[in-house]
Design a protein around this nucleic acid. Sequence first.
DNA 1: ACCTGAACACCGTTCAAGT
DNA 2: ACCTGAACACCGTTCAAGT
Lengths: 190, 190
Amino acid sequence: MPTPARTSVEQILAAGRRLVATDGLEGLTMARVAELVGVRAPSLYKRVPSRAALVRLVATDLLAELGAALAQGVGAGDPEADLREMARTLRRFAMSESSLLVLVFSPLPDGMAPDPEEVVRSVAPLLAVTTQLVGAQRSLPAARTLTAWLTGFVRMEGQGSFGLGGSVDEAFEFGLDVMLAGLRGVAGVS
Amino acid sequence: MPTPARTSVEQILAAGRRLVATDGLEGLTMARVAELVGVRAPSLYKRVPSRAALVRLVATDLLAELGAALAQGVGAGDPEADLREMARTLRRFAMSESSLLVLVFSPLPDGMAPDPEEVVRSVAPLLAVTTQLVGAQRSLPAARTLTAWLTGFVRMEGQGSFGLGGSVDEAFEFGLDVMLAGLRGVAGVS
DNA sequence: ACCTGAACACCGTTCAAGT
DNA sequence: ACCTGAACACCGTTCAAGT
């Protein structure tokens, strides 16, 4: 006699996301997720193969959101303006979801890292802009330089690692100036 | 009747470090540490207040090692050469201890992050060089730009996030060129 | 077909009891 | 003074039993 489903992957995902946001990654336990969706822990395994898979689901979900935000701010202006816009968008996103950042810009145990395909997709807008800036041959190292700086920066900011005082806003804009001046410089030498 | 100590903080620290290196942070459990040092888990609490404190100890230890390596390569040449040297030293260190990287360049749960004082000390050589490059007023944002890029890069490399092919060595040297050209550029405008 | 309680092997941590 | 077994409250996960 089939009994009706009492929850769904969507509900479980939302509960997982809420727990990571409020209590960090270690706050996402199967028992607490189950409680939030109104079911017992073993039932979760009908929808999700493991806790690691659930973490991965939340991370991928978050990354897709970031990718959508990035893609939105691209297109109109010149490449430098586009890049500034995207960088600020990424930082804004990271700050608004700072408690979830651990899922996207940090190393996760095996099996919890977000879907690599989604990673590539979310970074695509950045790669498009660097191609315009430094040409196709150098676009890959340029995008890597840019993403390394960006992810390093937002992780440090989200973690509160800027402990020496001074304006973090200023440091971000300064960094943006350095990146653009530097990309201009190496592009000119080519 | 006092019984002789059967282990030490040093042994416990070494065991913790070995476990993180081989099995990641989650592989460091009190039971396994105890087994490695030849004691039962409860005895560890005579030397170390908690697992979190032990993780923090390992992280601080590792960071001190990095700081020593950085300080070593500084001094002789011009500031740009010093910076290149230090950047490569940091990357080499990160690669050689890639499995321990999670302790130094990643967000850790509260209470596990390395001693902030040690963080400041380890970064001091970098700050000294950026001061020479861009002047005292801009040295803080410059150092932040640099460390953001460096930590972002080594974390991505250690995590294997450079999945699109291409030479990672080249991307690092390219990034170094961008940073130096960029710092030169903004310094000139001052 | 889904949900449940019971169970298993693990955690970190505390503590009374031994020496 | 240090070490230990036992215990506690928690994990993730499996599974037979219920509906």
